[in-house]
Every structure is written in C-alpha cells, then in structure tokens.
C-alpha cells in the first residue's frame, strides 16, 4: 500500500510529534496528555492520536471515557474535549462496546487500523498532532511512520524513568529513531524523585538522573525531569486537568517547561 504524499485529512495539520519509549509504564500517555493540555492552554489547536491499541489510556486521562466516534461524509469525527473544539482525540478506546474487551490482534490488523486512523479521521486544522504509542519498536511504530509518511513527522519526544532498566530500553528506542530517520526532539525524565507530602523528604524511588545522563550520552535535548507526584497520578485517574488544578506545584513547572521547549523546537 503506497502512502499518498499528502494524506487528505492531514492536510491542515502543521506538526506531528510522536511520544515514545522502549519501556512500558514510564508515563508516555501521561506526558502526551499533559503536553496536549499545555499546548491547548497556550492557544494551540491540538489533536491526539492514540495508537496504543492493546492498552488505550488517553480517553480516561483526558476525562473522555465512554464517548463515541461518529462517521460523517468526510470520514471519522474525532472526539473533542469540551465545547471549544481545540482538543481532538482518536483512540481505539472509543470503538469498544465493552471497555474490558481485549484487542487480541496480531501485527497486520493493528497496522490496518492505524492506517485508517491516519487516512480516515477528519482532524481539520491542527497546530500539533501528538501520537501516543505503546512501548517497544514494533508493528505500531512502523505502521505510524509508514502510514503518516516519514516526512510528515517532525520528530519524537522520548519518555523514560531514571533507572537503568528503563533507560536501557530507551537506548534501543533511540536506535530505532536513528534507523528510521525520526528526529529526536528531546528526552523527558519522568517519575524522578518523590517528595513525601508528610515530611518533605525526597526519595528517589526509581533512582535519579538517568534520563539526563541518557540525553548527554546520545547528544539529545533534555526536556526536563518530572517528579513522581501522587497528585498527577490521581488527576490521571479522574481525567482532571492537572495543569489547571495545581499551577503552584513543582510538577506543573516541569511539565510546562517541557511543553514550552517542545513548542520552541517545532517553530524553529
């Protein structure tokens, strides 16, 4: 299947950013969600494409669970957060009748659905389309690049947690990016340091500094460290806008800095 050089429904999408990590559970979906919200608050039109078909988390994190995708003449209408229509989301989570249903699909089917997400979703005009991916370097990742066309992808934000077990996997993701010609826009170190809400003692539950070290080692931009923050995980559970709810927190500052550096990188 050949990819059109300018897929019709993506015509008015300015930037495409992949959020990736070799490792699972490091916070890709969380960072995608917070980036989407930060960009939206900065007045941008944002789309989120969730290609984690076996474990779609974004609908819950954006408080959009139990919504549906509708079909119109031009294709599939994504689900919008709020009435402003500045944050659009497409996820396999919207296509399941029963949320506990497992998508037990081998690669070719996943590739086919991702192809449809790319060609059939009516994104309209977007400043940035963020693509949340599952862990690994396999079918979904190759499908996104193949269906979007490499030239349509501005680059990838890589998320890691500080410990070696995680940065090890992210090093493999960096190799993936190099081999497939995806630019690395930067590395985010997530869950670095937990500040006890009772006594303010900081514990590095998942070690510390691994993401920054990795950025140095590979000559990548370091986008910042986001602390392990129970208020953030609780916000993700409830689908609450963390940036709006906790603008005083250190986590807010860190997330905001990541978003600003990213925007800057995209505009230059």
């Amino acid at each position: 299947m050949e990819v059109a050089s300018d897929p019709g429904n993506l015509r008015n999408v300015r930037h495409v950013v992949l959020v990736m990590s070799g490792k699972g559970g490091v916070g890709k979906s969380t960072i995608t969600t917070e980036l989407a919200l930060a960009l939206q608050h900065a007045g941008k039109k944002v789309g989120v494409l969730d290609v984690d078909l076996c474990g779609p988390s974004i609908p819950r994190m954006l408080g959009m669970a139990n919504q549906h995708v509708h079909q119109c003449d031009a294709g599939w209408v994504p689900v919008y957060a709020g009435s402003q229509q500045t944050l659009a989301l497409m996820s396999v989570g919207f296509l399941l009748e029963d949320p506990d249903e497992a998508i037990v699909w081998r690669g070719p089917r996943k590739t086919a659905l991702i192809g449809q997400f790319v060609s059939d979703v009516v994104w309209g005009e977007l400043d940035v389309l963020l693509v949340d991916t599952p862990p690994g370097t396999s079918d979904e990742h190759l499908a996104v690049l193949e269906k979007l066309g490499k030239h349509r992808v501005d680059g990838a934000v890589l998320v890691t947690t500080p410990q070696a077990v995680s940065t090890g996997d992210v090093r493999r993701e960096i190799t993936f990016c190099k081999k497939t010609g995806v630019k690395i826009l930067g590395i985010v170190e997530n869950m670095s340091g937990f500040v006890c809400p009772h006594c303010s003692e900081c514990t590095s539950i998942f070690s510390k500094g691994g993401g920054e070290e990795l950025a140095k080692l590979t000559g990548s931009v370091f986008l910042g460290s986001v602390p392990l923050d129970p208020l953030l995980s609780a916000s993700m559970e409830e689908g609450r806008d963390f940036l709006q709810a906790f603008p005083e927190s250190a986590t807010y500052t860190a997330l905001q800095a990541v978003a600003e550096t990213l925007l800057h990188a995209l505009d230059h």
């Binding site: 370097t137 079918d139 090093r171 081999k179």
Partner: peptide, 12 residues
Amino acid sequence: PDDAVIWRGPKK
C-alpha cells in the same frame, strides 16, 4: 545493548 529489535509480529 543499544541494538533495537525492529521486528514486526511474524519475526517475533
């Protein structure tokens, strides 16, 4: 340790 295994399903 940096080698990525960029394989689709059938190879895995």
